[in-house]
C-alpha cells in the first residue's frame, strides 16, 4: 500500500511531523485568539468558554482530532529521535557544530518532551476541570508565582520549539526558495515571538493583577 510505505519512509515521517506540526500551530492560533479575550476581561473569556462548550459535537471532534494529531506528533518525533540515535551509533570525541544557532534544532526532542509534560499538567487542570468556572480556576492558578513561572517557562520552551519547527516544517514541505528565504527566516523569529507574547502575557497580567 503506497500510503503505508510513504509513512514508513524517512521523508514520509518528516512529512507527518510537519503536517501534524502545522495542525498544532493552527490550533495554537485559535487557542491564542480565544485566550486573547483575557486581555479584555475574565468575564469575556468565561463567555467565550461557555459559548465553545455549548457545541459539544464540535468540542468532541476537535479535542479528539487534536489529541490524535498531538499523539502522532509525539510518537513520530520520538521514533525519529530513536532511529536517528541508532543511525549515528558512535559519537565524536570533539563535539562542535559547524553552524551556530543550532541549539533550537538539536534540542527539539527535549523542548518537545517538556511541552508534552506541560500539556499533561495544563489539560488535567484546565481542560478536564469545570468549564463553567474556568475563568475563576485560571485566575486563582496564576495568582501563584510558581505556577505562572512554570507557564512562562513552558511558553519559552514552546517558542524555542517553534523557532526551529516552523522553518523545519516549511523545509520539509519543500518551501525553500531564494526569493522567500529572507521572509521565512524573519518568520522563524516572528511566529514564536507572537505566541510567546500572547500566551506569556496572560500569566503576567494575572500576577500583576491587571486583569479585570
Amino acid at each position: 500500500m503506497w500510503f503505508v510505505s510513504f509513512v514508513k519512509s524517512s521523508i514520509g515521517k518528516k512529512w507527518i511531523m510537519a503536517l501534524s506540526g502545522s495542525f498544532l500551530t493552527l490550533f495554537l492560533c485559535s487557542h491564542a485568539a480565544g485566550n486573547a479575550t483575557l486581555f479584555s476581561s475574565i468575564s469575556l473569556f468565561q463567555a467565550y468558554a461557555d459559548q465553545l462548550h455549548s457545541h459539544p459535537l464540535i468540542i468532541s471532534v476537535f479535542s479528539k482530532g487534536l489529541t490524535l494529531t498531538f499523539a502522532v506528533h509525539v510518537v513520530t518525533g520520538s521514533l525519529l529521535f530513536l532511529q536517528n540515535r541508532k543511525a549515528r551509533n558512535q559519537r565524536y570525541k570533539v563535539k562542535t557544530r559547524a553552524i551556530s544557532n543550532s541549539q533550537a534544532s538539536s534540542t527539539m526532542i527535549y523542548s518537545g518532551l517538556f511541552i508534552l509534560l506541560f500539556i499533561v499538567i495544563h489539560t488535567s487542570v484546565v481542560s478536564f476541570g469545570d468549564h463553567g468556572k474556568i475563568g475563576v480556576t485560571i485566575s486563582e492558578m496564576f495568582r501563584s508565582f510558581f505556577v505562572s513561572m512554570f507557564y512562562i517557562i513552558a511558553f519559552i520552551g514552546l517558542a524555542i520549539h517553534l523557532s526551529h519547527g516552523f522553518w523545519s516544517m516549511l523545509q520539509t514541505f519543500g518551501v525553500n526558495h531564494p526569493s522567500y528565504n529572507s521572509l521565512i527566516s524573519r518568520l522563524t523569529y516572528i511566529v514564536p515571538l507572537f505566541f510567546l507574547l500572547i500566551f506569556g502575557t496572560i500569566p503576567l497580567l494575572f500576577l500583576f493583577g491587571m486583569v479585570s
Binding site: S10, N84, A87, I99, S102, S105, S168, Q171, T172
Partner: peptide, 12 residues
C-alpha cells in the same frame, strides 16, 4: 542512514 531533522550541518 538517519532521518533529516533540518539541522543544516550538512550544508555547512
Amino acid at each position: 542512514f538517519g532521518n533529516c531533522t533540518n539541522e543544516r550541518e550538512c550544508e555547512a
